[in-house]
Computed example of a mutant assay.
Amino acid sequence: MKDLVALSGGHTLGFAHCSSFQNRIHNFDATHDIDPTMNPSFAASLRSVCPMHNKVKKAGANLDPSPVAFDNAYYKRLLQGKSLFSSDQALLTAPKTKKLVSKFAASQKAFEKAFVRSMIKMSRISGAGQEIRLDCEVVN
């Protein structure tokens, strides 16, 4: 569980296209247009960049305000309801993972230490003949 929360911090880097989070800002469910766990003003800003029938292929949003800095801003934003992905927001649904999110939001050093430990642990996983993708969206 700690590895999952620590490695999710990799979402402090990068950019997401509208298609990756569109389901949270338009027609979320039968009773909500926007995911109720999402900060309303954040959702509104995303909707302005990603309208319902978005045709702009490169439209989207940075994963956090410092998309090229490896920092703990991701966790801070997550606690504010400002995450793009529902998988990230789900980290707040269980008390143990929420506690870790809070810990990493409060301490850059704790996040970095956990991330390094988890990344090393993950590097030991054998792919059993599977390839590591150079681009997550495309099979090598």
Rank of each mutant, 00 (worst) to 15 (best):
Q22N: 10
F70A: 06
R47T: 00
H11N: 15
K99W: 07
L63I: 01
M122H: 11
Q108E: 12
S66L: 08
D135C: 05
G9I: 07
G60I: 03
R24M: 13
E112D: 08
P65F: 05
N39D: 15
E112S: 06
P51F: 02
K57R: 14
I120Q: 13
G81Y: 06
Y75W: 04
K96D: 13
C50Y: 01
G60N: 12
V68H: 08
S19M: 10
M122P: 02
K103S: 09
L46I: 07
T97D: 06
S86G: 12
R124T: 08
F15K: 08
A73Q: 14
A59V: 01
M1R: 10
D71P: 01
L92G: 08
A73K: 15
K98E: 12
R47C: 00
K113G: 06
L78C: 07
T37D: 09
P65W: 08
N72R: 11
S87Q: 07
A43R: 03
A94G: 06
H32W: 03
R124F: 09
A30K: 09
K55I: 13
D3P: 09
S19C: 09
V101P: 01
P67L: 06
V68Q: 10
D3H: 07
P67C: 10
L134W: 11
A105E: 13
H32P: 01
S48G: 00
R77D: 15
A44N: 03
F28C: 01
A110I: 03
M122I: 12
S126V: 00
D64P: 00
V139C: 09
S48C: 03
P95V: 10
A61P: 02
Q89G: 07
M119F: 09
A94M: 09
H53D: 11
D71T: 14
T97W: 02
T12A: 11
K76Y: 00
F70E: 06
S123M: 05
K113M: 07
G9R: 08
F85R: 05
P65N: 15
I25S: 04
V5W: 01
I125L: 14
A114R: 03
A59G: 05
I120V: 12
I34M: 06
N62H: 15
A90E: 15
R24K: 13
V68G: 09
P40G: 07
A106K: 14
G127S: 05
M52K: 08
A59N: 14
G81C: 07
M122Q: 15
A44S: 10
L91S: 06
S102D: 12
A69I: 11
T93P: 03
S86P: 03
D3F: 02
L13F: 11
G14H: 02
R24Y: 13
L92N: 13
P51I: 00
K103G: 01
K2P: 05
E137K: 14
H17T: 12
A61E: 08
G60P: 05
C18D: 00
S87G: 14
M52R: 15
S41F: 07
H32N: 15
G14D: 02
S48N: 15
V138E: 10
T37A: 13
S102L: 05
M1N: 12
I132L: 12
A110V: 05
K99P: 03
I125C: 02
P51K: 04
R24V: 06
S123T: 04
D3A: 15
N54I: 04
P67V: 14
T12S: 11
A43C: 08
V139I: 10
F15W: 15
M52D: 02
D135E: 14
A30V: 02
L4F: 09
P40F: 04
